[in-house]
């Protein structure tokens, strides 16, 4: 049973799907930068798997959005200006060291495990179905990043120090993921999308205990109040690189 969406709901749904798709795309972009540079061969393979999965998830959300607005995913990805992207800043920050990328991925994976579970209950079937499929892959990611966070947290004095530095830097970015536009409220009322504030609380509590078990502390710093149209100073270079080849020939087939 799926709801049919009126024009207003379609717009709101399309906007939200763009958030989710852009998050996956930009995270996949940063993840893929590790290919060929990971600390050990097995991790080149593992992180490339995560990058592929996230990119695939992005494609799924872009395609559902396309069924609502008709907009082609490649056109969205390769021909929007930086200011038009709607991903959170957490995913666009440069990859940093291995600890940084691992903590960032883990934050995203733990958020997704809470978020996707809620999305499976959406009254809009394409979203519910997609969430179910994506969740399979995310379950595996979480197992992977969780194992790493624990090991690097508890491993050596140096790994703990680097992990703590990563947590300190990334933790303030967590709030942006639950910040929504006004139109989102109607999606929640119609049970098409979940209440993100509630999810964010559940998420926060879950990660807290995991960090403590890994000998890592949550910083006291206040969350950054950012909306999704606000990007970091790193973002224009990221988009320029992403779009470089596609923009050489705007109408060509690649």
């Amino acid at each position: 049973m799926t709801r049919t969406l009126d024009a207003e709901l379609k717009t709101a749904m399309a906007a939200r799907l763009l958030h989710m798709a852009d998050d996956e795309l930009i995270l996949a972009h940063r993840d893929s930068e590790w290919t060929g540079h990971a600390p050990i061969l097995e991790e080149d393979i593992a992180f490339a798997n995560i990058a592929q999965d996230e990119m695939g998830h992005g494609l799924i959300w872009y395609e559902i959005r396309q069924s609502l607005t008709g907009e082609d995913p490649d056109r969205l990805v390769f021909f929007r200006k930086p200011a038009e992207f709607r991903n959170v800043q957490l995913v666009e920050l440069p990859k940093g060291d291995w600890a940084f990328s691992m903590v960032r991925q883990w934050m995203f994976d733990t958020w997704e495990s809470v978020h996707l579970e809620a999305l499976e209950h959406s009254q809009f079937a394409p979203v519910a179905d997609a969430a179910r499929k994506i969740r399979r892959e995310e379950t595996y990611h979480l197992r992977h990043t969780r194992a790493w966070v624990r090991r690097l947290g508890l491993g050596t004095e140096e790994s703990n120090r680097r992990m703590q530095a990563a947590v300190n830097e990334l933790w303030p970015y967590r709030a942006q993921i639950a910040i929504v536009a006004n139109e989102y409220e109607r999606l929640v009322e119609e049970r098409l999308m979940p209440d993100l504030d509630r999810l964010a609380t559940v998420w926060g509590e879950g990660v807290q205990s995991e960090l403590t078990n890994s000998n890592l502390a949550l910083p006291e710093s206040a969350p950054l109040r950012l909306t999704r149209d606000q990007h970091s100073r790193y973002f224009p270079a990221l988009i320029e690189e992403l779009q470089q080849v596609a923009r050489l020939e705007a109408e060509a087939r690649w």
Binding site: P39, L152, G155, S159
Partner: peptide, 8 residues
Amino acid sequence: DGRWVREA
């Protein structure tokens, strides 16, 4: 760069 990771 990966040495600290393998050791940890």
